[in-house]
Design a protein around this nucleic acid. Structure first.
Lengths: 206, 206
DNA sequence: CATCAATTGTTATTTTTTTCACATTGTCAG
DNA sequence: CTGACAATGTGAAAAAAATAACAATTGATG
């Protein structure tokens, strides 16, 4: 489908779906744009525009069919059979993130973990097999991995990223506070806890 | 100082400072806007405008004085003697986040942790004392805590948030995937791993 | 069956953020 | 001392995102 959606819209679509997922079995259930907006602190107009952009049509009297909505969002933002994701860096943060994602219901499948600590290689974390980073190219290809979650120590963030890019990774969720330089075509999302805290700190001053 | 900076600018200011912090002892060192921009994948104009907004003046020949720059960013986005932060929810994710922040160099001080598990109360995690959530009001006031990092299980996210708000917290960094409703004046920042992954998944399709 | 209230779909407007463009200025070379 | 280069500072333009406004539609109601 059309890949020209605004990033903000994609973010919100993901949230709509997650919020609505719990009602997915209620056949015929509907929701109004203002209700959905209220639940997520958005405006109804924003919700309607987002849904319009992915071609969802609501009922003028009953609102949007929840099941159809979940389905259409899926058609838009999911790959066909889920995305394969690798966790890179099996420290405390990495393990915690892994646990978090496995508890959440999502189409993102963590299918491999990478580290350089020999004692971790060939073990399983949860049920995720652990490989040496040097084998990334092979594993990434074999398992059709396209996304990496980067939870390595800052010192090795840049070098690790270079290896990941060589191995064919297309998107990176960067938990290190290190700035990464990626070529065009690679989608990088920074997850910078410190910056977020400082931002909060600034905006609560008055 | 002026609190009307665009959120994006505040985010970038935090990043400028973190990047430049390693040069803070080089007396008289300067950096050009285009150099700083290159390091963070921004445009030089954007950098200059951000700095202009907080009243920094560069040298037309040598660029911006790094030390002054770090100082001015601090004047703008820091509270006077750092911010007091509480970690709420001492599970794996909470502990990992705590470890991460303590390794990073930042003015955000984690001064208390909260949980409801009796076995954790009155212990220390790292050197952070752990309290029962019921004592939040008291502790928050005593320690001048203004920001909470929320790493509790999703089932209790809403109830916990209500308690935090009652105790006088002003800002929340929300690691749960649960949507939180906060009154005006409270600054909430969602840290939604799943949404971020799905966003990456969408944008690498083509 | 006509009315009415409520909601959608979408165009227009406003606001926010980024980018462009260029006059201005500090420093260095000669 | 002077000219020229290479920055900065900033108004203006453009792009992106959010909000407002309102006609069109639906279905419930009397």
């Amino acid at each position: 489908m059309n890949t020209k959606l605004p990033p903000r819209t994609v973010e919100r679509l993901s949230k709509y779906r997650r919020l609505l997922d719990k009602y997915k079995d209620l056949e015929g259930a509907h929701i109004y744009s203002h209700k959905l907006a209220g639940l997520l602190n958005l405006t109804p107009e924003q919700v309607r525009r987002d849904l319009m952009l992915i071609g969802i049509t609501g009922n003028h009297r009953r609102g949007y069919n929840i099941k159809e909505l979940i389905g259409m969002i899926g058609n838009t933002i999911d790959r066909h059979e889920g995305q394969q994701v690798a966790l890179v860096g099996i420290g405390n943060l990495g393990r915690a993130v892994l646990g978090f994602i496995r508890k959440a219901e999502t189409r993102m499948n963590i299918v491999a973990a990478f580290d350089i600590d020999r004692s971790k290689i060939n073990t399983h974390i949860g049920n995720v097999p652990c490989f040496h980073l040097h084998d990334a190219r092979q594993v990434v290809r074999d398992k059709s991995i396209r996304i990496a979650i980067l939870t390595v120590p800052p010192e090795v963030a840049v070098a690790t990223t270079a290896m990941l890019l060589q191995s064919g990774i297309r998107g990176i969720l960067n938990f290190t506070s290190v700035h990464l330089d990626v070529p065009p075509g690679i989608y990088l999302k920074d997850y910078d806890i410190i910056t977020s805290l400082e931002e909060i700190g600034f905006f609560i001053q008055e």
